[in-house]
Every structure is written in C-alpha cells, then in structure tokens.
C-alpha cells in the first residue's frame, strides 16, 4: 500500500512537471554545464601554457631577457584589480541571497569598473611596447633573438586572448545586471549570476598564472 501511495505521488509530480516541461529549471545542471564550459576555456589557455612551457624550456635565457622589459608594478596592480573584482562578484552573490538587490548591483558595477581599469592598463602596456617597436614584424623585435621573439609572440597572443575574455566576462555580467534589475534573477533564482561569477573567476585564475609567467622572470 505504502509503495502505491508513493507511486501516486510520483505520478502527480510527473504530470505537473510535464505541464511545466518548457520552463523547468535545473540549477545543478546549469552549473554543471558552466563548469564544463570552463574546462574548455582552461584547456584553450592550457594549450598556450604548454607552448609557453615548451619554448621557455628551449629558450630560458631569451625569455628572461625579454621579461626584464615588463613593468612588474603595472602587472601587480592589474593582479590586484582582478582579485578585487573577483571579491566583489563573490560578495554580490551573497548580497543577492540576502535580498539586498541594490548592494548586489553596486558590487557588480564595481566589478565592471575594475575590469575596465584592467583593460585601460593593458592598453597602455601594449601601446608602450608597440611604441618601442616591439610587435610582430616591428623594427625592434626583428633584431631580437628567437627566444625573445617567441616570448613576445606568446605575450601578445595570451594577454590579448585574456583581454578578450575580460571583455566577454564584462558583457556577461552586464546582461546579468539587467536581469537582476528586472527581477528575472532573484534571491531564490540566481544561478545565472553564479555562472557569470564562475566565468569571471576563471578569467581571474588565468591571470593569476599569466602574471608570474610573463612579469616575474628576472
């Protein structure tokens, strides 16, 4: 008898879910999907880290010479910026969970600001290098050793691609902010914010490795 009652209960839920099949929500599944996507990002950069490892192994001296040209201070500032933006994203989730919508939104604005500041710094760094003739095919780079050429090749590609991810992350957060403002993301339905946060943290993690590998090689 007990078994039958349970089966009936199950049926009730099954029917219910059927009617709502198109709007069903599975936060755990959504998070799982996001993590799998992060893995692909990780391995995308992972491929380049492997290249970096291979070339650094082959041209240890050239890499050191080239890295001496980097401004450690700006690199460190950018690291702090991204770490802080990661903090504000994490805090924004906590704020939303406690129904503090305004605080959540301001924290996300702050995140965007940090991201923007990071990009501005990157812009000045790049223009400084380019001004000095260090770019693919540039006059200064052409006279450098192979190790240095590869270092700067990887530097531009990896930080460039990372910068692109910062931009994408900012757009992602921007969309999420609109959803929060319109109460589509709420304290009981915040997986989208969580996913945006996961993406942003991944961008942070990649920078955590890029920073020592390109700036701290004296």
């Amino acid at each position: 008898m007990i078994e039958h009652t349970e089966a009936l209960e199950h049926t009730a839920t099954a029917e219910h879910s059927h009617a709502a099949a198109h709007v069903h929500r599975d936060d755990e599944g959504s998070k799982m999907g996001m993590w799998l996507f992060l893995f692909t990002e990780l391995l995308l950069f992972g491929g380049m880290f492997l290249l970096y490892g291979g070339y650094r192994f082959a041209y240890a001296d050239g890499f050191k010479v080239a890295a001496a040209d980097m401004n450690t201070f700006i690199g460190a500032i950018n690291t702090i910026l991204l770490l802080t933006s990661s903090l504000s994203v994490a805090l924004s989730i906590a704020a939303l969970q406690q129904n503090q919508k305004k605080l959540c939104l301001s924290l996300l604005w702050f995140t965007l600001l940090c991201g923007l500041a990071f990009l501005v710094n990157k812009y000045f760094e790049w223009s400084h290098e380019i001004h000095n003739g260090i770019y693919p095919g540039g006059p200064a780079l052409e006279n450098m050793s192979n190790g240095e050429i590869l270092y700067f090749g990887l530097y531009y590609v990896m930080t460039g691609l990372h910068g692109l991810h910062v931009v994408v992350g900012m757009i992602f957060i921007g969309f999420v902010m609109v959803f929060i403002a319109r109460d589509k993301i709420t304290s009981i339905n915040f997986q989208k914010l969580e996913n945006a946060g996961l993406y942003w943290h991944l961008v942070d993690v990649i920078w955590i490795f890029l920073f020592p590998l390109f700036y701290l090689l004296h």
Partner: peptide, 19 residues
C-alpha cells in the same frame, strides 16, 4: 606574422604536431 610555430622565428614545428 606573430612568431609562434615558424622555425625561422625560433618556433618548433614538432610542438605544433604535438598540439
């Protein structure tokens, strides 16, 4: 013309094959 795999710029074609 970014130098990554081109052996003329120090790149390693075998590393390309690995990847």
């Amino acid at each position: 013309g970014v130098g990554v795999f081109d052996p003329a710029l120090g790149g390693d074609p075998i590393l390309y094959q690995h990847m």
